[in-house]
Amino acid sequence: MDVLNRNNVTVTGTGQQAMVFVHGFGCNQHMWRLVAPAFEDRYRVILLDLVGAGKSDLTAYDPARYSSLDAHAEDVLDVLQALDLHDIVLVGHSVSAMIAVLVAIRKPARVARLVLVAPSPRYLNDTGYTGGFELADIEELFETMDNNYLGWSAGITPVIMGHPERPELSEELNNSFCNTDPAIAQHFARVTFLSDNRADLPHVRTPALILQSAQDALAPLAVGQYLHQHLAQSQLTVLNNSGHCPHLSAPQQTISAINLFLEPARIAQV
């Protein structure tokens, strides 16, 4: 299977530069639907599903290969190569913010700007570092996922995906947007929450926007400040918003902040 099918890549929009959006844990590329269209008039907009999520090729999910975020970073690089993309704007949410960081470190020429939405380099507390969580909390998350085995099941076909213009179709489906294979979700959660990418941060040379909510249980302000300190060319923007998904709960603020980061001159004129 070619990489564009493997990662269920969709390409829209027109422009010289490409903007690639990578979703976080718990959902799929649908997460970007309130934000991505705002860039289609100036950018080639590329959405993808991480292997194991959404409509990606689930058979490609080999737990051994995907036991670290590096494999997902390689997948994103595969997509960039397949589409022959350079100097892109790479937008990653949550765990994919770190995947985006790994991509930028490996192939700096491919990534001109990083937009890190609600990022965290490590979720677990450590000596001299506050990630926000203890191992027991993460174990509790796994337990909650176990209890929601049915809800995560991909048994219901997400018909709505093909009919965004007919939202009524979604009414019959229960929690269909973020269906995931339960076993894969468990594994990806483990990889996500036990990963530690703090040592990668000094290697980033790409200008980065750290975009986060004022209240976010998963990425507290202290984590955003830590990232800002350790990413050389970074800018921290805190949105007056609450929750881990500003691109869903505060899409306009999110779009404005990204625009300001990418084209400050243009915004200043307006």
Partner: peptide
């Protein structure tokens, strides 16, 4: 909610609620 439940709610519940 429990901390684990809250993580789940923030990552899965809230996006779903906003999407559908």
């Amino acid at each position: 909610l429990t901390v684990g439940g809250r993580l789940h709610f923030e990552m899965h519940g809230v996006p779903l609620l906003l999407l559908q």
